[in-house]
Computed example of a mutant assay.
Amino acid sequence: MLPSLSPTEVERYRRQMMLSGLGETGQRQLKDTTALVTGVGGLGGTAALYLAVAGVGKLILVRGGNLQRDDLNRQILMTDDWVGQPRVFKAQETLSRLNPDIKIEAVCEYVSADNIDTLVQGADLALDCAFDFQERDLLNAACVRWGKPMIEAAMNDMEAYLTTIVPGRTPCLTCLFPEKPDWDRWGFGVLGAVSGTVACLAALEAIKLITGLGEPLLGLLLTMDLARAEFTKRHPYRDPNCPVCSQRHLANLPQRLATLQPTAHC
């Protein structure tokens, strides 16, 4: 049974509940959801912000390391006085002030083989906003292993991509990138408006997947050249021999996955 909304929540979310594809039921579905966000920086922090204000019931924020001053051009949950301190705790503090009605767990660690299964098992879906492919591959494999949907978002310079991965139904990250790009986290420029644009779209994908609002990017890869404002939807190849997702059996996917799939658009 979905949780009820308090009078404060009804008031807070009144305008978005006016959307015909969301309504009170969709809002209660958001409240009933736990979202894992990895890499709480320009992408993950902004995505987490919009999930928080939309009323996702619990956020698990995962990011190791301390805030640096050159993070501040894009990491909108941070403030200058926090430089040198663990950024994930500042993200937790900022989001808690924005929406005290939700739960926020801060994990001051990088994604690793030691923690990824526990993190994924504790969530209903994940947003992959990590800064390198090592963390992304770990999250992708765990989401396939535990049958959890994953919103995959990344940017490089003025380009970006976005897709929604549902184990057993869409290509996974390894299908998309069987050979990993040579991606140096320090080797490209970052404009806050670019990471913010992709992050907003990633949060919207999660909201659509949870509530059935609109049509998520299932089996579609959205590529963006933001220098030219060019957006293209591509149909990625699902590798039947993928070493990650070809070994999953649909019969073993947890029941929770079915409630997060908008069957009207599949």
Rank of each mutant, 00 (worst) to 15 (best):
R145D: 00
C143Y: 08
N66A: 02
G65T: 03
N241A: 13
T118K: 15
T174N: 15
R69M: 01
A47K: 10
N73M: 06
M155H: 07
E215M: 15
G189T: 04
L260R: 00
D239G: 10
R228S: 05
N241C: 08
W82A: 05
A142M: 11
L209C: 08
G64L: 07
T197N: 00
I104H: 01
N140Y: 10
L221E: 02
H235F: 13
E179H: 06
L95F: 04
N99A: 06
G196R: 01
N140E: 06
G187N: 10
L49H: 00
D182P: 11
G212Y: 05
Q261I: 12
Q255K: 09
G212L: 06
K90N: 15
P167S: 08
D71K: 03
T25W: 13
I102C: 05
C266L: 15
P216C: 08
K148E: 02
N66V: 01
N115Q: 07
Q247M: 11
R74S: 06
D80L: 10
A106K: 11
A106H: 12
S4C: 13
L61R: 00
G196P: 03
V62A: 00
E205Q: 14
G65S: 05
N73L: 00
P243D: 02
P216F: 04
A203H: 08
A123H: 06
H265K: 06
G21C: 07
V37C: 02
R63L: 00
H235C: 07
Q29H: 10
V83R: 08
P216Y: 06
D117K: 07
D132E: 08
D32T: 02
F188N: 09
G55V: 05
